[in-house]
Design a binder for these strands. Structure first.
Lengths: 152, 152
DNA sequence: CGTTATTATATTTTACACAATATAATTTTA
DNA sequence: TAAAATTATATTGTGTAAAATATAATAACG
């Protein structure tokens, strides 16, 4: 893959398959998430909160790699749906703590259908599924640590 | 991975690594694309046009899996930057043909730095890089063809 | 202890991404 | 050959995603 043309072909772009793959999963999830009255980014936030009931906005942002400009409006919508509550930490009023309501906790059981559908539709065994996930995780990690090492 | 809890852990989500990976690449590309005065989705459109100079909006949409609501404003911005022109096909006035300008063609040579940077930062050999891309392509394909086959 | 620096979140702005709908052109049907 | 159906693109509305900036609170410093 030495020629300029090969480097710039859409079919050779790893970036494009990640982008297209992510959106294909979002499309696949949509009918299932509609039943839970959640959008895809809201579902990701709920995944974080189902692990640990009570987190700060910064914690959620770090887990999901999303900034507060994205999270604040999203959390407000979850709050208006009655799935979470937000309150300032008394000991440090800069921090907003996000906690699940009983309604929010209840959704967890229904939500398991979502990743099960992807697992089934992936056509992968459990080991292959996790191996692919781990390969992409490794890619992200190397991309972020090898900054400055490459010659243009 | 039988328990509900395991299915819903963020670290077990293939959907999340694709989503996070795609955005990590977009962040990595941003300084390089800023030099070309392109956003990431604009860059993808240019990749399509650098392969074939002249395409309809529908063609571009099919290649990138993007709909006209996304493409029309994006193409207008590329046009106002002088990189493309848009014109109705005389033989079928429903169709808008998108073609590169000389400026748009010239960008191709500079753009090759973008995928080269990813390739380098990925820490993968060429075979591994393409294998990962092919695995994700296969995943997308199976996800889209196995609709209806999975029990919730 | 007052000032400066840093941190946390919110707001504004821009660019998507997608669903729904509108408009116009072409194709198909009866 | 006119009407109905389909196709192509554009527009509107909503929800992100991120950059830049604003505001408020806490920590660090001299």
């Amino acid at each position: 893959m030495a020629a300029i043309d090969e480097y710039l072909k859409l079919d050779n772009q790893l970036c494009f398959v990640l982008y297209a793959g992510s959106r294909a999963i979002t499309r696949m999830y949509k009918p299932l998430l509609d039943e839970l009255h959640l959008t895809y980014p809201q579902y990701l936030v709920m995944l974080v909160l189902w692990e640990d009931d009570s987190r700060s906005v910064t914690d959620i942002g770090q887990r999901l790699q999303l900034d507060s400009g994205t999270l604040t409006p999203l959390l407000k919508r979850l709050e208006s749906q009655g799935l979470i509550i937000r309150k300032r930490l008394e000991s440090d009023e800069r921090k907003v703590i996000v906690a699940l309501t009983p309604e929010g906790k209840k959704l967890k059981e229904k939500a398991v259908a979502v990743p099960k559908e992807l697992f089934c539709r992936s056509g992968l065994g459990e080991k292959e599924f996790m191996a692919l996930k781990d390969q992409i995780t490794g890619l992200i990690s190397r991309m972020e640590t090898r900054s400055g090492e490459c010659e243009k």
